[in-house]
Simulated scan of single mutants.
Amino acid sequence: MSAQRVCSASGLEMDTPLRVELDGIAIAVVKDSDGEIHAIGDRCTHGDVSLSEGFVEGKTLECWAHGSAFSLETGAALNLPAYEPVPVFVVQIDGDDVLIDPTVTKEV
Rank of each mutant, 00 (worst) to 15 (best):
Q4K: 15
V6T: 12
C7E: 08
G11H: 02
M14P: 02
L18P: 07
R19W: 01
V20T: 14
V20N: 11
V20D: 07
I27P: 12
V29H: 07
V29R: 11
V30Q: 01
K31E: 00
D34H: 05
G35K: 03
G35D: 06
E36N: 08
E36P: 01
D42M: 11
C44K: 00
T45Y: 04
H46L: 06
G47R: 13
G47W: 03
G47L: 12
D48G: 00
D48K: 09
S52Q: 08
E53S: 14
F55L: 06
F55I: 08
E57R: 14
G58Y: 01
K59F: 00
T60C: 13
L61G: 00
C63P: 07
W64Y: 11
A65M: 10
H66K: 12
S68R: 07
E73A: 08
G75Q: 00
A76H: 04
Y83M: 05
Y83C: 10
E84D: 14
E84P: 01
E84A: 11
V90K: 15
V90S: 05
V90Y: 04
V91N: 07
V91L: 02
I93L: 15
D96V: 09
D96P: 08
I100K: 06
D101H: 05
V104G: 01
T105K: 12
T105L: 03
E107M: 04
V108L: 01
V108G: 04
